[in-house]
């Protein structure tokens, strides 16, 4: 049992960045397809630490997205537990889940998912308004974040007036709106060309370093390997292996 005192000491001086932010315990997810039961996850145990940049890799149908959604509090596992910042997600009611999604987690999507009828500024301000900020404060803060993702000059543009890369930048700014502890990025480069994808990865890495937010990304994109602290390889509903960056770089070297 940890007393609040030591808990707060930990958050001031984490033991070499080893403070847990996400932990899954024996996560199993089953889907019913007709009278068959499909096991998408067969007992996954992973721990993610604060400030890490994690890539979840694996072929389609491997359970990668299922694991990703479970970590993000978007999907309840059939059995097992998911802890986000020491909170068991399964125990939360609808209002607490909404609070968690609003303040603790920032979401980035493959399809950008900006609200089409709102400007870049309004898109970034929206989660802050959901969090209770006044409209004026939200707009001011949104403007500052948009400047940090180098879109200070396009804040009044609607998504349809922005390129794919610019839209994803707005989405990244929006994900960071409430200073979340975790950023969940679902194939963030999936709809972008090579160079734009590279720029988006660099931006995510920079925000990860500057904000100290944990970035968890489900991806096919091998460009991600370069910036990831650790890579979870998922196959057949299980964690096949967990590698840190150095190992991956050596592997890639051997392939050439």
């Amino acid at each position: 049992m940890v007393t609040p005192r030591t808990a707060s000491l930990e958050s001031i001086a984490p033991a070499a960045g080893r403070e847990e932010i996400v932990r899954t315990i024996d996560v199993v997810k089953e889907y019913r397809v007709g009278d068959q039961v499909l096991r998408a996850l067969k007992g996954v145990n992973v721990t993610i630490y604060r400030g890490e940049y994690i890539s979840i890799m694996g072929p389609s149908g491997s359970g990668k997205s299922t694991l990703f959604n479970a970590i993000g509090g978007l999907d309840k596992p059939t059995s097992g537990k998911v802890f986000i910042d020491e909170v068991d997600v399964a125990q939360l009611d609808a209002l607490e889940l909404a609070w968690l999604r609003c303040r603790k987690i920032g979401y980035i999507f493959q399809t950008f998912n900006l609200i089409t009828v709102m400007t870049a500024l309004e898109n970034v301000a929206l989660p802050m308004i959901f969090a209770g900020l006044s409209e004026a404060d939200a707009r001011e803060k949104a403007k500052a974040i948009l400047e940090r993702v180098e879109l200070g000059h396009r804040i009044y543009n609607k998504p349809s007036q922005l390129s794919g890369g610019q839209q994803q930048r707005v989405a990244i700014a929006r994900a960071f709106a409430n200073d979340p502890a975790i950023i969940l990025a679902d194939e963030p480069t999936g709809n972008l060309d090579l160079n734009t994808g590279k720029a988006i990865i660099a931006l995510l890495k920079r925000m990860n370093r500057e904000q100290g937010a944990t970035v968890i990304s489900a991806t096919h994109d091998l460009k991600m390997l370069d910036v990831s602290d650790r890579i979870f390889w998922i196959r057949d509903g299980m964690v096949e292996k967990i590698q840190n960056r150095a190992e991956v770089v050596i592997d890639a070297g051997e392939m050439h």
Binding site: A7, D85, V87, A98
Partner: peptide, 14 residues
């Protein structure tokens, strides 16, 4: 502290 979860209450009608 960490590990605390609040409840979402904001209802922005405007």
């Amino acid at each position: 502290g960490r590990g605390a979860v609040g409840r979402q209450v904001r209802l922005p009608l405007r």
